[in-house]
Write a protein that binds this DNA or RNA. Structure first.
Length: 352
DNA sequence: AACGCGGGGAG
DNA sequence: CTCCCAGCGTT
């Protein structure tokens, strides 16, 4: 559709009456806190609103300002992120606020280039902070916006193609130029999340149905064209639930790898045999006795992996230092633990 | 351009 | 089961 101003108008009007109340949204007439917008937008990367709601309040309550987050220990930050996934986001956010404190007096920089250069702040997040917190006409294109655009403008090239993405960013840039850029961007995302949904778009309730090319052509169910997806790889893993002699504390190692980096995990390795489990124990810096067979098997599914985990039990000695530590049940809440490790502790009967 | 990175909710 | 979510950084 050529008349973007009509689309703008309808979206803003709809958003004014249909926006969900979300804790990171500023009240009408109040300026949004750029730091809180930043935190929420990082949490929202590839993560649904409903999931973020379970973490956001606790996080900003504990770290209410950029300075307070910058001053926190990494373990403390990871503990607050524990279970939310994509843990690198937390470490990048932490690095980002440190940079803000060091170079910008603790204030999120309003200037686009400075904002974009912060760790973890990509094209999307920079635009979200710019438009929502600073009221600048900066575009946003996320999964919701792509779906809405693909339908409204009947874009039939697959998502994920460079040309498709660039086309959509240009559309977003054109559309956001005007009043209330933050609301316009949020209106697009909100529409995609609540009305123009993937499986069954509620066209009869959609404010832009009259402007929708896909709807006109009866193609709304066939758009957008998804990008091809690679099937997840199946991986067998061994995890060792090694406790101290009296079974009161469990040995955890802090991951440095990309997977679960920065989190405290059960010692793990790829494979399914007792031999591998022995190697895992030794590799962790532990000496002890191990069950000959797994005490439990469980699955853990990630987007890109299907892990089948064999859990061994051990009693082991070692020295808590660096990336190895013995944690009591009461310590676990203060540590960043992956859901996989949480699951392993449960299957192994270590509730403390 | 492709890939790795969590976890969970919806259908 | 499958899909994909208010993406980013690396290669």
């Amino acid at each position: 559709m050529r008349d973007l101003s009509a689309l703008r108008r309808v979206l803003l009007a709809w958003y004014t009456t249909h926006a969900r109340e979300l804790p990171w949204r500023a009240r009408v007439g109040e300026p949004a806190d750029p730091y809180k917008v930043w935190v929420s937008e990082v949490m929202l990367q590839q993560t649904r609103v409903g999931t973020v709601l379970r973490y956001y309040d606790r996080f900003v309550d504990r770290f209410p300002t950029a300075a307070s987050l910058a001053a926190a220990e990494e373990d403390e930050v990871m503990a607050s992120w524990s279970g939310l996934g994509y843990y690198r986001r937390a470490r990048l956010l932490h690095a980002g606020v440190k940079e803000v404190v060091a170079h910008y007096g603790g204030h999120v920089p309003e200037e686009r280039a400075a904002r974009s250069s912060l760790p973890g702040v990509g094209r999307y997040t920079a635009g979200a902070i710019g438009s929502i917190a600073f009221g600048r006409p900066e575009p946003i294109v996320d999964g919701n916006v792509m779906r809405v655009f693909a339908r409204v403008f009947r874009i039939e090239t697959p998502l994920g193609h460079r040309d498709t993405a660039e086309h959509m960013w240009r559309l977003a840039e054109t559309l956001v130029a005007g009043e209330r850029p933050g609301d316009l961007n949020q209106a697009l995302m909100e529409l995609g999340a609540t009305v123009c949904t993937k499986a069954s778009p509620a066209c009869e309730a959609c404010p832009v149905a009259a402007h929708c090319a896909a709807r006109r052509a009866g193609q709304q169910a066939n758009l957008p064209v998804a990008k091809a997806r690679r099937p997840p790889r199946r991986v067998t893993m061994v995890a060792v639930l090694a406790t101290s002699q009296r079974g009161r504390r469990v040995w955890l190692t802090r991951g440095q790898a990309a997977l679960f980096g920065g989190l405290w995990n059960l010692p793990m390795g790829e494979g399914d045999s007792a031999d591998v489990a022995r190697g895992v124990l030794r590799e962790a810096g532990l000496a002890g006795r191990l069950t000959t067979d797994p005490v439990a098997r469980f699955k853990h599914v990630l987007t890109h992996r299907r892990l089948e985990v064999s859990l061994f039990r051990a009693t082991a000695r070692g020295t808590s230092q660096g990336d190895l530590r013995a944690a009591g049940a009461a310590d676990l809440d203060a540590l960043g633990i992956s859901s996989l490790t949480r699951k392993g502790l449960r299957h192994g009967g270590f509730a403390g």
